[in-house]
């Protein structure tokens, strides 16, 4: 496994943990599962800390293997594919959000609120989740390419 692939796995773990933590803080767990909240938060925080430590160690190991390349043209190409897919994802998501806002302004909240109520705070939550999902799209694309061997 190359260093860049390892970075992608670490990024995937930390993004999922942050997303899980954020969703739980905002909406909480479904009814009947509230007792697991503390345990889940503990797990998510541990994952974020471990991901941070691994990333730190990877950064430090750069100086131990002299002459070894960390990132080459293939890594840059794969990263480019990740950015491309993340861009497509963000364009579609923002277009859908804009359409939702447009419809709710034109026809009223009751038609558009099936997706989410477009209040400023809900729009902020949606944008933050979109940000995390975009990062996830990039990382998953990279991991797919690395696993495919392309």
């Amino acid at each position: 496994m190359s260093k860049q692939e390892l970075y992608a796995w670490v990024s995937l773990a930390s993004t999922l943990a942050i997303l899980g933590l954020y969703l739980m803080m905002v909406w909480g767990l479904p009814e009947g599962m509230e007792s697991y909240t503390a345990g889940m938060i503990d797990i998510f925080i541990k994952v974020i800390v471990i991901a941070f430590v691994v990333e730190l160690l990877l950064g430090l190991s750069k100086h131990t293997k002299a002459g070894r390349i960390d990132k080459d043209e293939r890594d840059i190409l794969i990263e480019g594919k990740g950015f491309r897919n993340a861009y497509y994802f963000v364009m579609v998501a923002i277009s859908m959000m804009a359409a939702h806002l447009f419809i709710s302004n034109l026809f009223g909240e009751e038609i558009a609120m099936n997706v989410y109520r477009a209040t400023p705070s809900m729009t902020l939550h949606a944008l933050l989740i979109l940000f995390l999902l975009t990062s996830l799209t990039k990382t998953l694309t990279q991991l797919y390419c690395y696993r495919q061997g392309t």
Binding site: M1, S2, K3, Q4, E5, G67, R68, I69, D70, K71, D72, E73, R74, D75, Y146, G149, T150
Partner: peptide, 13 residues
């Protein structure tokens, strides 16, 4: 890989 300046995974690919 070391001689051409890429990772071993790239040579494998």
């Amino acid at each position: 890989a070391d001689q051409v300046g890429v990772t071993r995974q790239t040579i494998h690919a």
